[in-house]
Design a protein around this nucleic acid. Structure first.
Lengths: 112, 112
DNA sequence: TCAGAATTTAACAAAATACTTTAATGCTAA
DNA sequence: TTAGCATTAAAGTATTTTGTTAAATTCTGA
């Protein structure tokens, strides 16, 4: 529900109370994604599941650190996991996150 | 330039050195946007220029705080400004930022 | 059951961010 | 030139985030 206003003959908008809350939620989402390691993890998870170990070999840091970042992503509902034997396979939970990553890729990555 | 790999018959990708740098840059961009006040400012600036005073009346905080957030956005090249008399009019610098905000809006805002 | 691999948890210090207050700057209009 | 508004800068504290280390879990295969 947007709040529209006519200023100088042009339609613009201010933020309604609900929109305000939505912006807060989106800011929280962005904040969760806005860490180099976490964003790399999300890029890697675009087209496959990965374990902590898989991710650790791509993103140079410790297991514990990867695990912590994964749990941050999980706590925000950005990724989910399934267990299989000793391994935990992580994947992106929400198609909207995929879409957002795709958009950022299209907009900001040189590789066309 | 992406790095492709065939794993289990499926094509997936890892991060090349250049991609790695690009991800870092995008993470920095997201980090700058990932603050409720700054994101609100960007939403408000979608379709108009605004002064510190204009923004302050929409986003409930002090002038100094708005000014600081604007200067953070400016330092990251996300917004630019023009001076006119006593006022400084801010606007979004890059159409890609606009596109990104639009996408987030489409994906995550209930208002269709 | 036991050894070992994969992952998580907890605790802590270091670094980065955020908001407030107050002082300073720049511009205008009278 | 001066008063007053708009904006920025500086300084300080409080809070949050981060990465490391070491210990604890969890599960499997022998």
């Amino acid at each position: 529900m947007e709040n529209h206003q006519i200023i100088n003959g042009k339609e613009t908008h201010t933020l309604s109370a609900e929109e305000n809350e939505e912006v807060n939620a989106i800011a929280a989402l962005l904040k969760t994604m806005a860490h180099p390691i976490r964003l790399k993890i999300l890029c890697l998870l675009q087209d496959k599941e990965m374990t902590v170990g898989d991710i650790q070999s791509e993103v140079k840091t410790t297991n514990a650190n990867v695990s912590q970042h994964l749990s941050i992503l999980r706590n925000h509902g950005i990724i989910v996991y399934r267990k299989d034997a000793n391994f935990i396979y992580n994947r992106i939970a929400d198609h909207r996150i995929l879409k957002l990553i795709q958009t950022m890729h299209d907009l900001f990555c040189s590789c066309n």
